[in-house]
Design a protein around this nucleic acid. Structure first.
Lengths: 218, 218
DNA sequence: CCTTGGCCTACACATTCGTGTAGCATACTT
DNA sequence: AAGTATGCTACACGAATGTGTAGGCCAAGG
């Protein structure tokens, strides 16, 4: 999250304060007056710049979408971006805006944000699939969707994960531990291919035939 | 989620309505009057039974904890509980209370609920570890924590996952697709052991030595 | 019969919040 | 220099909400 060139302006300060308070308190509990106070302006100015509280949130969403686009390009062109970075980015995601993003995602908002995560994951899966012995039964997009959701899980459940691990996962030690756990989980299947086949055959619908209206790659 | 013997009573109806409205609208947007109306009682009765709005939410949390305990015992004693059920339970989790649980978890509440998920996952890992070639570097609890978080991801990001998959993941077709994706992801490592070792050596802290104050099993 | 206590309702109060309006200062334009 | 747009504040209003209070209905027990 590199700082925007537009800074110091009251409008930007209001947006940042809103991002923070919406995240910490939630949209309803965060009042316009509190946001204005945190930004060092009057409450009237918030209305002057953004029109309404919901419009202010829309602007926050849009700002985050732009920020993600920058980060997206950055990751795509970064040669050191490999696999785990995908998870690392998702985890430390949006730094101070983590809580805001979490709430937005839970409420079904911030769709472009989630979609970008899926797309990033799908691109990574292209490389992963090359080293895979058996052809995947399911589309890359489908697997990337669930993978993106799982990658976001630690960021969403930040408090609980930190509590159970006994370490703040945003601290250097916590991030290190998290990276090792991620490597372990991603490098060790928890179900053997045989078991997977057996369980697949037990699924109620269809007996594991690879094509019956499911989402498949072309 | 089996229905409680205590039912039909106004108190139970209020609690159920609160669970639903807190989930759908969020704690702040859901008003006591709306909850009372949904339960078919007056708003005063809500206060009479629960004292305050926050106390009502506490009761909702406690009720969910009790319900989870029942489900916990059920899963533990069910012989057909194998691996994927872990994910399936987390996904279709709490049925109508999914949104409530999601909000509670995001806000850092419902800790016993998350802890139960971790414990369940850790028990499963005991079996998984038996079939693992290399000894795990990290504690079972640590891996179970992240695993639990990832298992909850689809439930938390229900709307986005359903949207990207093009199927309601709570519908029979969606659940089937989800199960297949889960089997695929769990049975195929996305990182080879060699890559994992290489990436582990690249981590800033320590050069991959297996013990330097990390969380380890005994 | 009367009274006691648990459910339950109706109504009022104080607070808070989003929004609307009026007005001031500064800077830029013509 | 006058006009005008812009960034900003102060203040007020209406609505909604959590909470408090007074009272009614009804079964149980003396």
């Amino acid at each position: 999250m590199s700082p925007d060139p537009e800074d110091l302006t009251a409008r930007a300060r209001i947006r940042d304060a809103a991002l923070r308070l919406f995240g910490e308190e939630g949209f309803d509990r965060a009042t316009i007056r509190d946001i204005a106070h945190a930004a060092g302006v009057s409450s009237g100015l918030v209305r002057h710049h953004f029109g309404s509280k919901e419009a202010l949130r829309d602007e926050c969403d849009a700002y985050l979408a732009r920020a993600l686009e920058r980060l997206n390009d950055q990751v795509r062109t970064d040669p050191s971006a490999e696999g785990v970075n995908y998870v690392a980015v998702a985890t430390s995601m949006f730094g101070p805006y983590r809580k805001y993003v979490a709430r937005a995602l839970i409420e079904g908002r911030a769709a472009p944000l989630f979609d970008t995560m899926v797309d990033l994951g799908a691109e990574w899966l292209v490389e992963v699939d090359k080293q895979r012995p058996d052809p995947p039964e399911l589309s890359r997009e489908a697997r990337a969707t669930v993978g993106a959701a799982q990658s976001l899980a630690v960021a969403l459940l930040y408090e609980h994960v930190s509590r159970r691990l006994g370490v703040d996962v945003l601290s250097p030690e916590g991030a290190d531990l998290l990276a090792r756990i991620g490597l372990d989980l991603h490098s060790h299947p928890t179900i053997s291919p045989d078991e997977a086949a057996a369980l697949r055959n037990r699924l109620p619908k269809g007996a594991g035939s690879p094509d019956e209206g499911k989402v498949l790659d072309d």
